[in-house]
Design a protein around this nucleic acid. Structure first.
Lengths: 350, 350
DNA sequence: GGTGTAATTTAAAACGTTGTAAATTTCCGA
DNA sequence: TCGGAAATTTACAACGTTTTAAATTACACC
């Protein structure tokens, strides 16, 4: 760098702190190049000579240039933003945050920012999706807890908006998704209970309207039928029920005749509530009954190591969703962007 | 609306679905006004006549006009975004999400969007703050878990960037904050234990580097000294320790001579871990020992109603932080924007 | 009817970036 | 030394909004 350029740099740096951010214009003036050239050089366009490319990059680094996202967005129409739709039910025990962990990892080296659109405000989730589509608030969307004919998915498909769901649907049009194999979870968990010699198993299922209710029920019933063991499924209760309802139900039921002695709990809160309900009746884990729970954080096994758990790796799911979404935005075919993550390992579906 | 305008509307609406979003230009063409006039009319500028103001608003509503945030941001330099810095330690039990709940409520009727900058990526929290300041990624910042001389606060103060912390600091320059009265919590909780006849109390304190460590210690010690009761404070443990460490410590300690029988737990996880550790030794809550815990979600009291709790209203804190931040952005003096929320009620400090 | 003033509307520039199309320079062989 | 293609650089317009300053219209008064 020549002496005059050095002083130009010094000048511009002081400009930064005084006036405002350095822009392409700043660099253009410092290097004596045109704004367009600078833009191309920074974008590593092919028609720029290697020497100027290097020089521009050097100066940009020197003065700490960062492109103005608002201007880029206005010009290109792309936001460089990925939005996560967060549902109130995902709050507890960091469900949402675990996924975001993985998402952040997937987007780390990219120019994408991760923004969370909490659904906390009154409106339904569909409104939020609509708003994001119509305002172009993001280049892609991620959300979970899908229903078989999820209205959010329908809306996004109709508008050709890139998205990845956590959970499958039953639309004939394919879309990108990452899902946990809840059939395998319920099947495996229930088999373990039976293997421990439990005579009557039960399961706290997700709300009926969610897709993974079906998978879990199927896994549970398959294990039950294979072993020919007794079972029951609480009708008035689901995984979204408040913990006290679960606790009270378990307490009440375990005092009645012919109670279940094997619990499949697809959530950590339900497992804790079950333990409390049972111990209220003087029943102790591993002695009078067993639990196999789905574990998504380290909390449960830390507090209650006696609960047997099957792991669902939410950060991994988040990371997968991030990667799939990037590929979807880049134009890849949705049907090639699906993943089913097993209890132990993840593998892409064909 | 005249018939020609009606058809103009129809035309523009079909334009929307075909081409792209309606802009000021769309409305200008439809009404025959200039773009400037439309902009002013929508902004309710005083020099616009009431009749055109109404007409423009009507047309805008009709075609579902929404201002382009990128363009607004580019022109005005304001992002209309409030950013929340999320710390990994805030994940569990929806600490962060509770606060966001309140924030969302505070920003609901405003034009502000709430975006979460997860600190999940390797970098320190300070880097994130720096990035947000230098890129103008937001108009204001919110974060928690302050240290007495928090480097994030220092950086923001130096740059005159609007922010509100959850937690106090010891800088001489005042800044906006919302804090929970942890002195009152620890004092009250410990007094309750003593009132139940417990002979030796203990407390699991937050990490020493955080400001609220001091307040809590002070509250605890004040209650201890007033009652002249025995106490101990675990040195190798804090509120951020993994649950199993807390559980193991409690189990070990309760088997040694002269164990504490009254636990002040400033977190729900630590309370659950304590219960488990004690019950491993055959000790039962309310009989051989008592717990008074800080409750931030409904989870703990639902699962374990026998734990006595003192409530910290995080959504309320979030909402307060949101409101204060808006006022700070609007230019109000930072020293007037502080709040200390008590265990029962919140009141502004003078 | 003309004049001055207030009320209302407008054109033009700007924010920082990128895409298009044109201009300039470089380099080669004749 | 010169044409001409290739390589490199450039000017200009545009994205949709707000702001500044200027233009137009309306109104009241003499």
């Amino acid at each position: 760098m020549s002496p005059t350029e050095k002083s130009a740099v010094r000048e511009a740096v002081s400009n930064v702190s005084r006036a405002g951010k350095p822009t392409l214009k700043t660099i253009a003036e410092m290097t004596g190049l045109a704004i367009t050239t600078v833009s191309r050089a920074l974008g590593n366009a092919p028609q720029i000579s290697e020497s100027t490319r290097r020089r521009v990059h050097a100066v940009a680094a020197e003065i700490g240039y960062l492109p103005d996202r608002a201007a880029q967005r206005l010009k290109t129409g792309r936001t460089n933003v990925i939005s996560v739709l967060l549902d109130p039910h995902e709050e507890i025990l960091g469900f949402g945050t675990s996924i975001m962990h993985g998402l952040a990892r997937a987007l780390q080296a990219t120019s994408y920012h991760l923004i969370v659109t909490p659904n906390f405000l009154d409106g339904s989730n569909v409104d939020a999706v609509n708003y994001i589509i119509r305002n172009g608030m993001a280049d892609g969307l991620i959300f979970s807890r899908t229903e078989p004919f999820d209205p959010r998915v329908r809306l996004l498909l109709e508008n050709g908006f890139p998205f990845v769901t956590h959970g499958r649907t039953e639309f004939s049009t394919p879309h990108a998704f990452v899902d946990y194999d809840n059939f395998a979870f319920a099947y495996e968990a229930t088999k373990r209970l039976i293997a421990k010699g439990r005579r009557k198993v039960t399961i706290i299922l997700p709300p009926r309207r969610l897709t993974f209710h079906q998978y879990m029920l199927h896994g549970f019933m398959t294990a039950v039928r294979e072993a020919g063991v007794a079972y029951e499924i609480p009708e008035t209760l689901d995984l979204d029920s408040p913990a006290d309802m679960i606790r009270d139900h378990v307490r009440r039921r375990s005092a009645e005749p012919d109670p279940p002695d094997g619990y499949t709990c697809p959530g950590e809160v339900s497992a804790l509530a079950t333990i409390t309900g049972m111990s209220d009746n003087g029943l102790t884990l591993c002695a009078e009954y067993d639990i196999v729970a789905k574990q998504t954080s380290r909390l449960l096994s830390q507090i209650q190591p006696k609960v047997e758990t099957i792991y669902e790796d939410l950060p991994a799911a988040g990371e997968a969703m991030g990667r799939l979404l990037l590929r979807r935005i880049a134009g890849e075919n949705a049907e090639d962007l699906t993943m089913l993550l097993g209890p132990q390992f993840g593998f892409p579906t064909p």
